[in-house]
Design a protein around this nucleic acid. Sequence first.
DNA 1: AAGCTACCCAACCGCCGGCCA
DNA 2: TTGGCCGGCGGTTGGGTAGCT
Length: 239
Amino acid sequence: MKQRANCNEDGLNKGAWTAEEDELLASYVNAVGEGNWTSVPKKAGLNRRGKSCRLRWLNYLRPNIKRGNISVEEEELIIRLHKLLGNRWSLIAGRLPGRTDNEIKNYWNTTLSKKIQTKKSTINMPNIKAWNPKTNPLEANITSSSISYLIQTKAQNCSKTSDPLHILPSTNGVMQTQQISQQNFQDELMEEKKDKVLDCDSFSFDDEMWIDGLEFGGEINVVDDYDNDLVCSLFDSNL
DNA sequence: AAGCTACCCAACCGCCGGCCA
DNA sequence: TTGGCCGGCGGTTGGGTAGCT
C-alpha cells in the first residue's frame, strides 16, 4: 500500500512490506518467538529496523489478528474505553481481543472522533441526577450523556488529559458532586462543604467509587474555579 | 474518461520509561 | 547515580483508493 522511499540513508528498506519479507519475519518469530527485536532483522535476513519488524509482527503477522470491520459492540466498547482511558490505545486494544492499538487508533481518528464530535455538539450537558454507582454501577438512573460526563473524570486521570470535570452548582446551592458518588463520598463531601464549598483544594474519600463498573479510590481535587463552575479532577490513588 | 478530493490505514518517527552495567 | 540500550507507545505522515464532479 504505502510506498515511501524504498531505502533510507542507512540502506535499510522502508515502506510497505513485501510478501517475502513477511514470510521471513513470520518464519523467524514463529520459530524463535517474540522479543529481542533489534537482533531480529539480522537473524531473520531482513533489511529492516528492529522496530519496524516488531510493528509489522504485532500489527499484521501475529496470529489471531482480527481484521475487517469493527462491530457495533466493539465500537461501543472503544468509545466507552476511550472515555475512561483517553488515547491509551494499547490499553484499549488490550480489551479487544484480536485488535491492535494501531487499528483502534486509526479507527478512532478516522471514524469515531467525528461521530463523537457530532454527538457532543448536539447534547446539552444535563444536570447530574442522584446515582449510587457502587450499588448499581451499570444501571445508573441517569442519561447516557451524563454517564459520559462522569466517566470523563476517570479518563482525565488516566490519560493525563486537560479536560476537567465541571461540577455545576445546582439552583439550591448544593453542589451536584454530592449526588454522583457513593454514600461515604457524599458524606465526606458534605462535611467538607460545611466550611468551604468552593475554597477547598480537595476532597478525599476512603472507599472506592464505581464509575461505569470500574472501581477506583482517591480524592477529588479542585483545579480551578471560574465563573460559577467548579472545575475538578479525580485522582485515583490505586493507579 | 480524467481530474480532483477526502478518507483510510500501514508504517514511520520521536519520546519516554525500564532495565542493566 | 549515571548513561546507554531497548522496547513500547502515541502522534504523524503520505500512498492507495473510493467517490464525486
